[in-house]
C-alpha cells in the first residue's frame, strides 16, 4: 500500500484515493482554442523516472484533491499537500 498523507484526513492507504495524474500540468485557461498549449496540457507528460508531482482525489475520504510528491521509481512518498501548495523535494536524498 502507498500511504498518502491527506491534509485533512491524515495518512491513508492509497485504495481510498483515485489517481488523477501529473500535477505539473496547468490548465491553460484563457489560451486560444488553437493554442498548442491545449494539446500539451491534455497529452504530453514529463514522465520522470524519479520524483513526480501528482494529484490524487480522496474519493473514499474527504473528497479533496491531494497533491503528492512521489518517487515513481521506488513508490516512496516524499510529501503531500493541497493543490495550491508548493511541495519541495525533501532535503535528504531519496533512495534510488
Amino acid at each position: 500500500m502507498l500511504y498518502i498523507d491527506c491534509p485533512y484526513c491524515g495518512k491513508r492507504a492509497h485504495e481510498e484515493f483515485t489517481y488523477i495524474g501529473d500535477a505539473t500540468k496547468k490548465r491553460p485557461d484563457g489560451a486560444e482554442k488553437n493554442d498548442p498549449a491545449w494539446v500539451d496540457y491534455v497529452y504530453t507528460r514529463d514522465n520522470p523516472r524519479g520524483p513526480h508531482l501528482e494529484l490524487w482525489h480522496h474519493g473514499l475520504g474527504c473528497r479533496e484533491v491531494v497533491k503528492v510528491l512521489r518517487n515513481i521509481l521506488t513508490h516512496e512518498i516524499l510529501g503531500a499537500g493541497r493543490p495550491a501548495d508548493d511541495i519541495p523535494l525533501p532535503e535528504t536524498e531519496t533512495k534510488p
Binding site: 484526513c9 491513508r12 485504495e15 481510498e16 474519493g59 473514499l60 475520504g61 474527504c62
Partner: peptide, 10 residues
C-alpha cells in the same frame, strides 16, 4: 471520526 472505505462502501 473518519471518512473512509468500509467493505468498499464510502
Amino acid at each position: 471520526s473518519r471518512m473512509t472505505g468500509l467493505f468498499h462502501a464510502a
